[in-house]
Design a binder for these strands. Structure first.
Length: 116
RNA sequence: UAAAGCAGCCGGAUAAUCGCGCUUUAUAUUAACUAUAGAGUGAGGAAAGUCCGUGCAUUCAAGGACAGUCCGCCGGAGAAACUCCGGACGGCGCAAGCCGGUGGAAAGUGCCACAGAAAUGAAGACUGCCGAUGGAAACUCUGUUUCACAGGCGAUGGUGCAACGGUGAGUUAAGAGCUUCACCGGAGGUAUCGAGAGAUACUUGCCAGGUAAACCCCGGACGAAUGCAAGAUUGACAGGAAGGCUUUAAAGGUGUCCGCCAACUUCCGGCUAAUCGCUAGAGAUUACAAGCAAUUGUAAUACCAGACAGAUGAUUAUCUUAAAACAGAACACGGCUUAUGAGCUGCUUUAUUCU
RNA sequence: GGCGACAUGGCCAAGUGGUAAGGCAGGAGCCUGCAAAGCUCUUAUCCCCCAGUUCGAAUCUGGGUGUCGCAU
């Protein structure tokens, strides 16, 4: 789990990020990036796996945890690419990504961040 | 040994590193927020489905009548329940055992397609059986056949899920539960046993479909509505509609009516943030006692998730044969139902073999 | 998390316990010189699934699955 100050929290922030519509897809995971920042604040991240993706809460939570852990480790290793230039990021999990293990998920997240 | 039945257990553990939620302590900061460090703690047997029942909260009412909803063998347990335990009866199984929404169809109404003479009304139209009497025919002339018909009968009709108890015999002109018989099924009565559901025995020819998971009748239970996104507090922001003089109609609250409450103001609607609600309980564990059991009582012990974009993850090692199945708390609790992995333990039944 | 509704041919759908209407679409035929229109015929043996009640269930009862909605 990542610390609280790096989390995207308010519904308004989520809808603002969706409006920018800066999409990157790979391997069942979609990355949405918000606007570029003009002052020094932490980049906030949200993780979403909708109920339409899978009915069971266990599998949805599993995917969210894997994505979170991947981002946390990349943040710690300082390998997030240009992600620091954006105000907010959202990772959207889709049904294709449900079966992936941790290593695959981490590699996917890394490649997505490199595309920014 | 094999095949079954019942009851119960487990639902990974330990360590290290990197991390997260909550509580709390210390330090920094005037305080709060926040940051750092330490300590404690952190998903299930179904947390699920939301199928029942409660607590809790708000609004209305606290009265009466009607309606409505639910339940339905007996006894017990329980806060209550489409709940549990013990029994009765019925069904299934060789058996251990399992399953059952199991009051009333003779209070009434409805429905019973097609087929069938007829589908509920105790009908006897029809098809039939018998044959007093009268007529006719032929002959072998005590009679036989045939026609009409008063009457007797309810056996015959093969359709249907179902045909007015069933099967066989007797009786008879023909026949029939026909107070004739045998066996069987049901119903009533009496006696005994049982707390009761009911059981057993004797007896009465008493025997007149099914459906109530159709309306209904009987007996019993229930304040209603809305659900923690209930609701309370604090702070900031900010409305909309109707009526207004009289009459009529309509208009607020509870299922309806009466009644009652509210009536110049009433009704509707809030938005945002924070805090509370929020977890010490019809609770958990252990022991003892009562009871066949469900369950109850007493004592001791500890406090054991409480989030709000929503906490349990990642990597490695060891153990176990293997670490897998179903699956994630959101106010709480009692049940039911459904999903599910690898096994283990105990008892019981049946079959076979050996002693 | 809470509350509620629905499921009938390929599509839209009616159906109060007794053979599952109708329209559109599809197929075949008639008509026409050829088409369109019109006419005739045809397509449900699992009425979302599994049990139960009943002689008989799309319909009644219980359980499950899926889809959609409400406060938003």
């Amino acid at each position: 789990m990542i610390p609280r100050k790096y989390r995207l929290k308010s519904p308004a922030a989520f809808s603002a990020t969706y409006r920018v519509n800066n999409l990157h897809r790979k391997n069942g995971i979609i990355l949405l990036a918000g606007m570029k920042k003009n002052k020094e604040i932490p980049t906030k991240v949200g993780f979403v796996v909708s109920k339409k993706t899978h009915k069971r809460a266990v599998k949805r939570n599993r995917l969210k945890r894997l994505m979170r852990e991947s981002y946390r480790l990349l943040l710690k290793e300082d390998r997030t690419g240009n992600a620091g230039e954006y105000i907010s990021l959202i990772f959207l999990g889709q049904s294709r990504a449900l079966e992936n293990d941790f290593k695959t998920t981490k590699q996917t997240i890394f490649e997505l961040l490199s595309e920014l």
